[in-house]
Amino acid sequence: MSNAAQPAQRLAFKDTPLGHFVADFSANPIAVIGFVGVLLVVFIAIFAPWIAPQNPYDLMQLDFMDGNLEPGAQTALGFTFHLGSDNQGRDILSAIMYGLRTSLSIGAASAFIALIIGATVGLISAWFGGRTDTIIMRIVEVQMSFPAVLIALVLLAVLGQGTEKIMFALVAVQWAYYARTIRGLALVEKNREYIDAARCLRYSQTRIIFGHLLPNCMPPLIVIVTMQVAHAIALESTLSFLGIGVPITEPSLGLLIANGFHFMQSGRYWLSIFPGLALVFTIVSINLVGDHMRDILNPRTRGQ
C-alpha cells in the first residue's frame, strides 16, 4: 500500500470531523427540531427591531387606549395584538421578541466569557499540576459548594442593578464549572503522545497548551457551553423575576414574567404565560441540541 499509488483527491466535507458530526447530528429528528428551534430563537433575537410589530419601548408607539387587550384583539387602526397587550398598550409579542434579545445576549455572552476564564484557569491547573492545581481546585470547590442563585444574589446585592453587573454575576457563578470540566479533560489529554511529540518539537508551553491541548478538549466543552447558555438564561430570568436582574428599561423574559405575574389572578394570563412559554421553548431547544451533541461526541454512547 504505497501512498504514491493512491489517486490525488480532494478531501470531501463528509470526511472531516465536522462533516461526521453534521451527519450524525442530522440523523436524529429530535435534535434537528431542537436545532431549528434554536435557529428560530436566535433569528428573532437578532432581528427583533425589524420584525417586531412595534417597538414596545418607544412610548410614541404605545397607546393607553390599547391597554389590557386580549390575545388576537384588533384596534380600530387595524393593528392586531396577537398575544395581547399589557396595561400600557404594549404588544406582548413584540415585548417577547425584545426580551429574547436581552435574555439570549446576556446568556450567551456570559457563558462565553465564563468559558474563556474557566478554560484558561482549568488548563493551567491541569498543565502545571502540583500546588497550582491544588490551590485552583480548592477555590473551584468552594465556589461550587454554594448554590448559583445565592452567589448571584449576594453579588447583585453588593453591585446593584445593570446589564453588565448581571453578566459579571453570571460569569462569577459559571467559570468554576468550566474550569473543573476542562481540567478533567486536559489531565487525560496531556498524557497522550502527541503532547510529548509537541514537547519534542520544542514548542513553547503557551503553544502546547492553547494550540494542541485546548483543541483536543474542545468537543465536550462545546456541549457544556451550549448547556450553560441555557442555564445562564434561566438564571438571569430567575434573578430578573426576583427584581434584581436587568433594569426595567431593558426587560428580559424573566422581567416580563415578573411584570405580568401580578395580573395572573385578575385573568390577564397572557402577560406572564406567553413570555414564560418563550423562555421554556428557548431553554428546551438549546438543551435538546446540547444533549444530542453530547451523545454524538461521547464515544461511549455513540451508535447506541
Partner: peptide, 29 residues
C-alpha cells in the same frame, strides 16, 4: 535530537491536518 514514537495513532494531534502539523513545526522554528 528528534524522536519517533511507538504509537502512530496517538503521537499525531488528532484535531490538526497532517500537513499543518509539519508546517507548524517548520514555521515556529
Amino acid at each position: 535530537i528528534q524522536m519517533v514514537f511507538q504509537d502512530p495513532y496517538s503521537s499525531l494531534n488528532p484535531r490538526m491536518r497532517i500537513g499543518d502539523q509539519i508546517r507548524e513545526a517548520i514555521n515556529v522554528h
